[in-house]
Design a protein around this nucleic acid. Structure first.
Length: 276
DNA sequence: CGATTCCCCTGATAGC
DNA sequence: TGCTATCAGGGGAATC
């Protein structure tokens, strides 16, 4: 599942290749992937625009285009964005193909068809649904310990639920939320406003740590994720709790458990992460 | 308004 | 062996 570190890795693998190229044409095999504008309009507007740079906000990948347009891409669960030569075999579930001025292609494939692509004017970025309500970027300066403390105090929801809430913090998904909670030794069911200052500090540093490690290891390829070159990440080898039910906790050896928290699987160590 | 539930979708896996 | 049921989950919409 592409979360912040995976989207950041895709961004880094693609920006060297895409920056400076022009999009000659777009082939849309599955119209519903294009959220806005209409597929015809989308194709017309994007044609001939130059890719001036790449960006990321939360789990959204941003392709900045000439004439102040931005291509907004969300991979959701199984989306893939891959740079390839036209001669390379077209994988199943390839829904959108951007033909580039150097003869190569940028391909969007998505088995479960949850991913979305949208085109918006640059100045309207902060009005785009999903983007406009995003919380702070956890690896940027605006995410401070004080901010986390202030926001936690206001909330009576479970920690796991809160970490997955993109309006609270942008970019965490199920994998890195579980890993951050384990590292901070906090139970996923703990209520947000019950944390001590020490626990808040632990959570703060843990969130930043797991995301940085994820990026350093080129993301987690638990199932479908690959980067812009189609290569898998390495962080799945270093996960301590996620998808490790029944296996020993790397810290204490206790068997890792799994429970549902607001509809999502949560993996945790019952010894390291006590409920209290 | 904030919190919760449902739904989209296909492939892997469990169960019979 | 082969079929069906269940699960996985990000985020938007609907509902409480």
């Amino acid at each position: 599942m592409p979360e912040l570190p995976e989207v950041e890795t895709v961004k880094r693998t693609l920006e060297l290749k895409l920056t400076g190229l022009t999009i000659d044409s777009v082939d849309i095999a599955m119209p519903k992937i294009i959220r806005e504008p209409s597929p015809q309009e989308f194709g017309a507007q994007i044609k001939g625009r130059k890719i001036t740079g790449l960006g990321r906000r939360g789990k959204y990948l941003l392709l900045y285009l000439s004439s102040d347009k931005v291509l907004i891409i969300h991979l959701r669960m199984t989306g893939r964005l891959i740079y390839a030569a036209p001669g390379e075999p077209l994988p199943r579930h390839t829904h959108v193909i951007f033909s580039l001025s150097n003869g190569n292609q940028l391909r969007f494939a998505d088995m479960r068809q949850f991913g979305r692509i949208q085109l918006a004017p640059k100045q309207a970025l902060n009005q785009v649904k999903g983007l406009k309500d995003l919380g702070p970027e956890p690896l940027e300066k605006d995410f401070t310990r004080n901010l986390l403390r202030r926001e936690l105090k206001r909330k009576r929801v479970r920690l796991k639920t809160l970490l997955l809430d993109q309006t609270f913090i942008a970019g965490l998904g199920n994998i890195y939320a579980d890993e951050a909670l384990h590292r901070a030794r906090l139970h996923p069911m703990r209520i947000a406003n019950s944390l001590s200052p020490r626990e808040i500090a632990n959570l703060y540093h843990s969130i930043i740590e797991v995301l940085r490690e994820g990026i350093q290891n080129r993301g987690t390829s638990f199932r479908d994720y690959v980067d812009g070159d189609g290569r898998k990440g390495n962080y799945q080898k270093l996960l301590r709790v996620y998808n490790r039910e029944g296996l020993p906790c790397p810290h204490c050896g206790t068997t890792i458990a799994r429970m549902k928290v607001s509809g999502r699987s949560s993996y945790f160590c019952p010894a390291c992460q006590r409920k209290q």
